[in-house]
């Protein structure tokens, strides 16, 4: 049972990250390979604030969202003016730089040793130390992010994102400063992701830089491509499938150390098969 609760929490965390990345990639059509970097900012800032200042988790995670948002805004101000291909490489570069900083800024991040002993969230004196309760918190968080993404998608803002995805030039001639929109959605997505990974850090209680390296960004990208770009439900479905797939392999008889290695293989394979047979993903409407 504990095991299913654990998987459930991971699905919620990845679901939130996938939902936020879908705003950028799915709704707006900007392929970003930097979501793990914003995850890293969220997790590290939350963890460091909790440990150094002992403040409440919810305050810490909000501050981490602001930090991720501010960095996304600065980075995005440069990137969102770039053309498609340069933009993609820009996000790759950013993820690599952030990973390197986490790995080498020993005095703050403890480098490869990582940060242990991150405490669980506390709300009005109640501590989410029990995993079942934590799952409740994760589900509520997922529902909130899902609601926010739906709200954004159904707003006039969401309609403009869709228009940018299909024809940015034509959209701008009808009076939209399209790079403002791209910058805004890039920043919002970074903030949602920071929340999810702040939550993750307190759940897992230990973080190190490897969790926030480039392959993780590709893993998240694979989730939303699998689930279907520009589909809010698809993002959650993609997260669900790519979290449980390697676990399922373990049940059908793969030894657990091999199953762990298989995670990379499976999602690589899933991506290849998708591109061949269903480029719009399971629930998606559009192809990259």
């Amino acid at each position: 049972m504990e095991y299913f609760v654990h998987i459930g929490i991971l699905i919620c965390v990845y679901g939130m990250v996938a939902l936020s990345l879908n705003l950028v990639v799915g709704e707006t059509g900007m392929i970003s390979v930097a979501q793990a970097a914003f995850s890293g900012i969220g997790a590290y800032v939350t963890a460091l604030l909790l440990l150094a200042l002992g403040i409440n988790f919810f305050l810490a995670v909000i501050l981490s969202m602001l930090a991720a948002g501010a960095i996304a805004f600065l980075v995005g101000a440069i990137f969102t003016r770039l053309q498609e291909v340069y933009y993609v490489f820009g996000t790759v570069g950013f993820n690599v730089i952030l990973y390197t900083v986490l790995l080498n800024w020993n005095s703050v991040t403890r480098g490869p040793l990582g940060i242990p002993g991150i405490p669980r969230p506390e709300l009005f004196g109640f501590i989410f130390s029990d995993n079942h309760m934590f799952l409740g918190l994760a589900l509520a968080s997922l529902a909130a992010i899902y609601g926010l993404c739906t709200f954004i998608k159904n707003s006039s803002f969401g309609r403009v994102l869709h228009a940018i995805r299909e024809d940015e030039e034509a959209t701008s001639v009808f009076g939209y400063a399209t790079h403002h929109y791209k910058l805004a959605v890039f920043t919002i997505a970074a903030m949602f992701t920071a929340y999810a990974s702040g939550l993750y850090a307190t759940y897992i209680s230990y973080i190190d830089p490897s969790t926030f390296a480039l392959p993780e960004s590709i893993f998240i990208l694979a989730m939303i491509i699998l689930g279907g770009l520009s589909s809010t439900r698809g993002a959650v479905l993609g997260a669900f499938l790519l979290v449980i797939l390697p676990e399922a392999l373990r049940f059908v008889g793969f030894p657990s150390d091999i199953a762990a290695q298989m995670r990379q293989m499976t999602y690589g394979l899933v991506l290849v098969l998708l591109m061949l047979y269903r480029p719009q993903g399971i629930l998606g409407k559009f192809r990259i």
Binding site: S155, S156, R159
Partner: peptide, 20 residues
């Protein structure tokens, strides 16, 4: 929606909190 696109709010902040 193609028509609503050119009828609705242009600023980012306004558009975010607007539904047609």
């Amino acid at each position: 929606d193609n028509i609503l696109l050119v009828l609705t709010e242009r600023t980012v902040w306004g558009a975010l909190f607007e539904r047609h």
